[in-house]
Design a protein around this nucleic acid. Structure first.
Length: 604
RNA sequence: GCCUUUGUAGCUCAGUCGGUAGAGCACACCCUUGGUAAGGGUGAGGUCAUGGGUUCAAUUCCCAUCAUAGGCUCCA
């Protein structure tokens, strides 16, 4: 059962983390007496505190602070609370400008320390004190620092980071120190271990080691180059999805990577996302834009013919590559790039077909994720923030679209949460949030309902009664971006891909040179059955070849020597180190082809 | 874009308190023909990210740029 907010705040762990933040601030103020303190809340897995400091912090500072925190904890200081008037608070924090700002906002009834609006102006404020440190804080805290285990906290586990005051990029940047805190040292070790596991799965490192992709400075950052093994993986996924879509009534289209600027002015993308697009290219008297979205192109295909209600739903699909000038600090391996391919499709439907078609799309995406072993997902329904003016279109249309999405989730019994302000500018959306094996949540596929672009482009169809209604559009991409999705897959599988996705499925390991010919023959036969095979003719002994194939997570190693040649067998060793012994080639072939065709996650 | 970190061979890293560099892996050649997690030898490979500055002298110190990592902000 979900815990209420109050229960979470009262939990021991929450109080340990909150109190640890105060203790860190105390230690930091000893190290940097001229520091200005901002806020220090508990967060998932720990806490942080933001400071304005006279100089950058270094490892030595952090080690000192951590040690000092442990001393303070061992000191057995009580946490005490006191009510103060706004004036007392202002006097106490006279030299702490961020605290003064917080006090003023609380007293004048604007927002609390988290930026949330408060119901009424505060007449009394609370101070919490431990040892020499007092903070403006509403608590709760542990009763005594002894309730914190000094060996279950760390502030050196993560480097200091920059963070804008109140999350506003227009305001000054503070130094944020992250800490982690747990009830027992074992729990902390477990957490640190999980962080290490995540690091080992880093797709940027695995991608390099497994030869999947590379990023060249000369080509440009955020513009990944797919190497053969990565391209095989990607192509396998694309072919599978393409076929699945054809089976579900989608029609392929292909559109160029560039178009006239006016196209995106009509769609609204250009004015709206100007800052994150590559600048327009001037040629003669025209201006062109590298395509930031596929939808306008697909709309022009829709518009190229007179459409009848008989044509709907019309489902146009394309692996369309788009370019966005993402902020440089955002770029990250394959998961955030400047050029990427969307497994895009735009569905043009009659208004009364919307719900049914939307549900079909959602269940198609569910099936796709399930077949990849990504079974832990939920839906996030992104709606319009009523306060914001960044959205286009009328209220009626937004309400209709939002209602359709929620209805679909209900009908499909898909768990969902509604998040205000997460919509696209032209319509509400449903995002698939997927948890990988390390329980990290990623945003993957997205489905959006759109009444606005049909209007902007003035598209219509001829209805049964000879009227000309507008179709509704559904934008959808199960993977989202091939780059990002494969980055996540690499981490999810830790580079150990299911057989059907493995770039190399079988490595032949001939024992001596005289077995090359036999190995080549086996490889040729498997290849003709559609299996991806390599023959290791490198120098070195069998042990080395096995070691290398294991490290590349190649599902099967087929060792062939005199005995195998004589018996016309292959000795099968799997990457799990399980040995299947000598099998007739035909038996092995039957097994692996079956596993590949069924997209099995198993090796036998 | 902003704050902080880092940038030495294809990869992982050592080193130079300022006098132009070294290891392992990988690669090439030779020897070895070995039945389930690294056989041995030799060799090639670096404008020490780039551009400025300080200095008799810069890979080393300073500045800028580019790239990288951790965050913040943003994400159609």
């Amino acid at each position: 059962m979900a815990k209420s907010k109050q229960q979470v705040q009262d939990s021991l762990l929450y109080r340990i983390r909150h109190s640890s933040a105060h203790i860190m601030a105390e230690a930091m103020l000893e190290r940097f007496p001229e520091a200005h303190i901002a806020i220090g809340p508990p967060i998932e897995d720990g806490f942080y505190y933001d400071f304005a400091l006279p100089r950058p912090v270094n490892d030595e500072d952090m080690a000192w602070v951590e040690n000092r925190m442990k001393e303070i904890i061992r000191g057995g200081f009580a946490f005490t609370v006191k009510e103060v008037s706004p004036d007392e608070a202002r006097t106490f924090f006279a030299k702490q400008p961020y605290k003064i700002e917080l006090i003023n906002d609380l007293v004048e009834g604007r927002v609390d320390e988290n930026g949330a609006e408060i119901a009424a102006p505060a007449e009394k404020l609370t101070f919490w004190t431990q040892d020499t440190f007092t903070d403006l804080c509403r608590g709760p805290h542990v009763e005594n620092t002894r309730q914190i285990n000094p060996d279950a906290i760390s502030v050196t586990f993560k480097p200091p980071a920059g963070a804008y005051w109140r999350g506003d990029e227009k305001r000054e940047q503070l130094t944020r120190i992250y800490g982690t805190a747990w009830e027992t040292p074992e729990q902390m070790q477990e957490y640190l271990h999980l962080l290490e596991e995540a690091k080992k799965r880093d797709h940027r490192i695995l991608g390099e080691r497994l030869g999947l992709f590379t990023i060249s400075q000369l080509v440009g950052k955020g513009l990944p180059l797919w190497k053969p093994y990565g391209a095989i993986l990607r192509d396998t996924l694309e072919r599978w999805l393409r076929q699945t879509q054809i089976d579900n009534g989608y029609l392929p289209v292909v559109t160029p990577h560039i178009a006239k600027l006016d196209l995106y002015k009509t769609s609204g993308h250009y004015p709206y996302y100007k800052d994150s697009q590559y600048a327009p290219i001037k040629v003669d008297d025209d201006e062109f834009l590298l395509k930031p979205m596929n939808c306008p192109h697909h709309i022009m295909i829709y518009k190229s013919e007179m459409r009848s209600y008989r044509d709907l739903p019309l489902r146009l699909a394309e692996f369309g590559t788009v370019y966005r000038y993402e902020q440089s600090g955002e770029l990250n391996g394959l998961t955030r790039v400047r050029g990427f391919t969307v497994d895009d499709a735009h569905l043009f439907v009659a208004p009364n077909q919307l719900l049914e078609e939307f549900k079909k799309v959602v269940s198609l995406i569910q099936n796709i994720f399930n077949s990849l072993g990504l079974t832990d997902f939920r839906a996030r329904v992104g709606t319009r923030d009523p306060e914001s003016d960044k959205y286009v279109g009328s209220d009626v249309l937004w309400e209709r679209a939002t209602a359709a999405i929620i209805q679909a989730c209900e009908d499909l019994k898909l768990p969902y949460t509604i998040e205000s302000g997460e919509a696209a500018f032209y319509g509400p959306k449903l995002d698939f949030m997927v948890r990988d094996v390390l329980k990290r949540e990623w945003q993957l596929g997205t489905v959006q309902v759109d009444y606005n672009l049909p209007e902007r482009f003035d598209i219509e169809y001829v209805a049964e009664d000879n009227t000309r209604p507008r179709p509704v559009m559904i934008h959808r991409a199960p993977f989202g971006s091939m780059e990002r999705f494969i980055g996540i897959l690499i981490e999810h599988f830790a580079g150990v891909f299911p057989v059907w996705l493995a770039p190399v499925q079988v490595m032949m390991v001939p024992i001596a040179d005289r077995h090359y010919e036999y190995a080549d023959g086996v490889a040729a036969q498997l290849r003709s059955a559609g299996v991806r095979v390599e023959v290791d003719k490198g120098k070195g002994r069998m042990g080395g070849k096995i070691r290398e194939a294991r490290e590349r997570h190649i599902p099967y190693m087929l060792i062939v020597g005199d005995k195998d040649m004589e018996a016309q067998t292959v000795s099968v060793r799997m990457r799990t180190d399980e040995d299947l012994g000598a099998l007739p080639l035909a038996d092995f072939q039957k097994m692996i082809v079956g596993l590949i065709e069924s997209h099995s996650l198993e090796l036998k």
